[in-house]
Design a protein around this nucleic acid. Structure first.
Length: 206
DNA sequence: CGCTTTTGACCGGCGC
DNA sequence: GCGCCGGTCAAAAGCG
């Protein structure tokens, strides 16, 4: 049947080192083949996305048969001003709200975190990506009957977050949005990113 | 007993 | 200024 829909990867052209590059290299483990396959399905069956360079928005446009007006924001605008956690590489754990508005650090330009959304067609909400996550929040989402869950990587010093949300439009679809990059190796050796893709393919063959 | 989840409160940003 | 909204905190409950 349908399977994995799409992955969105985009950068926050914030600082010197390109988080996008790092991200993609992090993601690149063997996924090229799978991805192109997925992309193919994605183009045919779902939708496409655009990326606004101005505010680094990521949008999922429409659905198969709906008009372009029917937009779904997959990854919301990366807020220019909220939280503080690292752009990825080991910023360190400035966890609390105490450091809330430090995206504007001393006249430096705002830091935008790399963020990418990953859309899968799956019965289960949580895909095992090999990292350990602790849930720290859940919120109802407007225009969506399913809540969005917020997770943080449990590894100390690693401030990667992710959000998981199911589309009410199509409850078979789960959108996982990652923020930041892991500062440590993957935890399980067997269940890595590649494993996810395997899982997806399993689902797709059902 | 230590870690994770749950859940209401809280906070800052944004639009009106 | 006010209210809404998305995101986070943190205490309490749950679980192995």
């Amino acid at each position: 049947m349908d399977n994995l829909a799409a992955m969105f990867l985009y950068s926050s052209s914030s600082t010197s080192t390109s988080p996008a590059a790092a991200l993609s290299s992090q993601l690149s483990l063997n996924m090229t083949n799978h991805y192109s396959h997925a992309d193919h399905n994605y183009n045919n069956r779902y939708s496409s996305y655009t990326q606004s360079d101005d505010d680094h928005e990521l949008r999922l446009i429409g659905e198969n048969k709906k008009g372009p007006s029917d937009k779904v924001v997959v990854a919301d605008r990366i807020s220019p001003s909220t939280n503080s956690f690292s752009t990825g590489d080991g910023d360190d754990l400035n966890t609390s709200m105490a450091s809330t508005k430090l995206n504007v650090r001393k006249g430096e330009k705002k830091i935008r975190k790399p963020k990418f959304a990953f859309q899968t067609r799956s019965q289960v909400d949580i895909l095992d990506d090999g990292y350990r996550w602790r849930k720290y929040g859940q919120k109802a989402v407007k225009n969506n009957k399913f809540p969005r869950s917020y997770y943080r990587c449990t590894q100390q010093g690693c401030n990667v977050k992710k959000q998981v949300q199911r589309l009410s439009k199509d409850e078979g679809v789960v959108v996982t949005t990652y923020e930041g990059m892991h500062t440590h190796p993957i935890e399980k050796s067997t269940d890595n990113f590649e494993h996810i893709l395997t899982q997806m393919q399993i689902y797709s063959s059902c």
